[in-house]
Design a protein around this nucleic acid. Sequence first.
DNA 1: TAGATTGTTAATCGATTAACAATC
DNA 2: TAGATTGTTAATCGATTAACAATC
Lengths: 218, 218
Amino acid sequence: MGNNKQIQNVSKATIGRLPAYHRYLKERQGAGEKTVSSTAVAEDLHLNAVQVRKDLSEISSVAGKPKLGFDISELIEDIDRILGYDNVTDAVIVGAGGLGSALIGYGGFKNYGLNIVAAFDNDPERIDQVLSGVKVFDSNELVKLVRRLNVLIGIIAVPKAAAQGVADALVEGGVRAIWNFAPVHLSVPENVAVKNEDMAASLAILSKRLAEILYNEK
Amino acid sequence: MGNNKQIQNVSKATIGRLPAYHRYLKERQGAGEKTVSSTAVAEDLHLNAVQVRKDLSEISSVAGKPKLGFDISELIEDIDRILGYDNVTDAVIVGAGGLGSALIGYGGFKNYGLNIVAAFDNDPERIDQVLSGVKVFDSNELVKLVRRLNVLIGIIAVPKAAAQGVADALVEGGVRAIWNFAPVHLSVPENVAVKNEDMAASLAILSKRLAEILYNEK
DNA sequence: TAGATTGTTAATCGATTAACAATC
DNA sequence: TAGATTGTTAATCGATTAACAATC
């Protein structure tokens, strides 16, 4: 019942699935549906039905109804609130090269509650450019600007040799969460969250599955 | 003992950590070290020492020596072999826009055993371009070309509306593993592996940790 | 030798899945 | 009403962590 479900209470595994539910629910809503059953969600997303039922009942502020299922717009609101999609958070990105500019250009992060307010680079050719509406500043200004803008999230998209230095600067500027696209382990204080986007790890897992598949049909 | 450790026997969680070990070991090797203890690895990568010891003993073809630790170059070779970093696999990428060209330009995948041999796009402005040495072909040629090149891995970096169609074409061409950067669930036959690079899910998990940190010091 | 570090067994933890009664 | 679908408890699974004897 209560309307105060908090992100803290929801398991990490469930949180990781919420974006997929959100996309799916938006899609069904767009198709004019009003309710959805966990059975249907499970089938379409290729998940276990019990898992979906548990996830949805855990996050839903309104109980599902036997025979009917869950109210789609209620669920969407709940996920919006839990993941903070409704109140956008500011972030900065460091590194305006290939990956950095792709991330800036993607633009879709706004839908996920993330608003990139500034980019940083130390290449004079990139400084002062405006990429997809985001201005590139000199890395020297990072600490000062991050502090002034009161930004809590930093995205690292620099070559690996530079990543730790950037992390240090972000922390010094007051950032409390770092999304790291550089293939290195970052050392940060305990009270700063780091999420590594480790492409090599993803690729390793995909290769493992591929190897299994090929092996099984040998 | 035996030199035939296979990727199949190693747990998924361990596989996911191997790339980080690999990077770390390369670094120590570069610094002139010959052996390394799991205690040291654990400390530097902020992992649990028992976990590291278990991972390393699981993958190492040569047992670690009490007091000394593991032989660095042996470990590197073992990981190379398990993850297939030693025998490069060909892949194609579909979508040569912002993210696609960033991935192509990254180039570092070769170190991870992945060689991008062709790109596809349906935008006439992009077709026939050569990005970082990779030629962009017309998407119409995808099935034919993938089949002819005998490529087993496909990378999807197209807008979400196009992703399922691309997946179908890749499968038709004979691809057995798909690395999907589009924010959609793909339906593929059972004997095709899919690894979703779900940025929204990563971001959700990072936001959760940030929320916890801020909550705890409220 | 002494002790740092290994390998392995057992305990714990978190997440998934199975089973089933409750109910719209 | 009948039955599809929920919510919840218990069983299972995989992964992590703790404990400790073996050993270079």
